[in-house]
């Protein structure tokens, strides 16, 4: 067996870093919803894909710059998140039941996407897709770099908001002990609506990043569920920085497995890491 070249290893690691950033970005909203609201929101993936299709539509047909579509998509996704939390709160669902309910919603959104855009492949053609920089022997694609920057920026922004703002402190208090937090005057319902809206907005941003780098087809949303769930569990439920770190660890590990061994071994990595973590720290997830 010959060892891969340094360029191959470095380029693969870079690729893993970028995909890991996207795992982290997808997992950020999911993890916050799961950890702080106790809602395992599978519709997060559907919302991200809906946002990706909206970006495709606005940019391809409407002629907007893909990044400008965020001005419309983010508020829409925020509203979707608020509406979803309002709906779920009417039923007082357990986390497991929220998983089932949002799975149903995911199927409905998928059918809606298919009804509007058909099941065929849709590719957002933008100048950003071909834009890249060469650093030595390595190639750095612009769209993926933007995704990674968004993931890092948003993760730290959410971390700062959770740590240094009254809203963040209130949300953490509610997650810790809702009755006591309420006794101190925190409006649990209003805060949950805001947080769910933020998670929706994060899904919207992830969706735009998806549209920049990936060809879209409605059923593709299911391909992300396993690895993003592993990312969230590995990173810690409700943690703002955990999913980013876990996503990068998984992405780079998968990429290096592909470079050194075989791409067919790569999917095993994320779940092996997850199982190892659960064995080492059973209370983590």
């Amino acid at each position: 067996m010959t060892l891969p070249s340094a360029t191959l290893v470095a380029q693969s690691a870079l690729s893993g870093l970028f995909i890991g950033g996207l795992y982290g970005l997808m997992g950020l909203g999911l993890g916050l919803s799961w950890g702080l609201l106790h809602v395992i929101n599978l519709a997060h993936f559907a919302l991200a894909f809906l946002a990706a299709y909206l970006c495709y539509q606005l940019a391809s047909v409407g002629g907007m710059d893909p990044f400008a579509t965020l001005a419309l998509i983010v508020p829409l996704c925020f509203a979707f998140g608020v509406a979803l939390q309002w709906l779920l709160s009417r039923f007082d669902l357990s986390p497991l039941n929220s998983l089932l309910a949002t799975f149903g919603l995911t199927a409905i959104v998928e059918a809606g996407i298919q009804g509007v855009w058909t099941a065929d492949f849709r590719k957002l053609e933008t100048p950003y897709a071909a834009l890249h920089w060469q650093v030595g022997t390595l190639y750095v694609p612009a769209a993926e770099l933007v995704t990674l920057a968004a993931a890092v920026g948003l993760s730290f922004a959410v971390y700062a908001a959770m740590r240094f703002t009254d809203l963040g402190r209130a949300l953490r208090a509610l997650a810790e002990d809702a009755p006591i937090a309420s006794a101190f005057g925190i409006d649990a319902r209003r805060h949950a609506l805001v947080l769910s809206g933020v998670c929706g907005a994060l899904a919207g941003i992830a969706g735009v990043c998806l549209a920049l780098s990936f060809t879209l087809t409605p059923s593709q949303m299911y391909a992300w569920i396993g690895v993003v769930f592993a990312t969230v569990m590995l990173g810690g439920l409700g943690s703002p920085l955990g999913p980013l770190a876990a996503g990068i660890v998984i992405g780079v590990s998968e990429a290096l497995t592909s470079a050194f061994v075989s791409p067919s071994w790569a999917p095993i990595v994320s779940f092996t890491l997850l199982i190892a973590l659960l064995l080492a720290r059973p209370g983590r997830a």
Partner: peptide, 20 residues
């Protein structure tokens, strides 16, 4: 010679190995 699972999300490392 390389194999990947259907539904693979990251083709970057595969591309890097082909280039190599």
């Amino acid at each position: 010679f390389l194999e990947w699972d259907f539904g693979n999300l990251d083709y970057g490392p595969i591309a890097a190995r082909i280039k190599d």
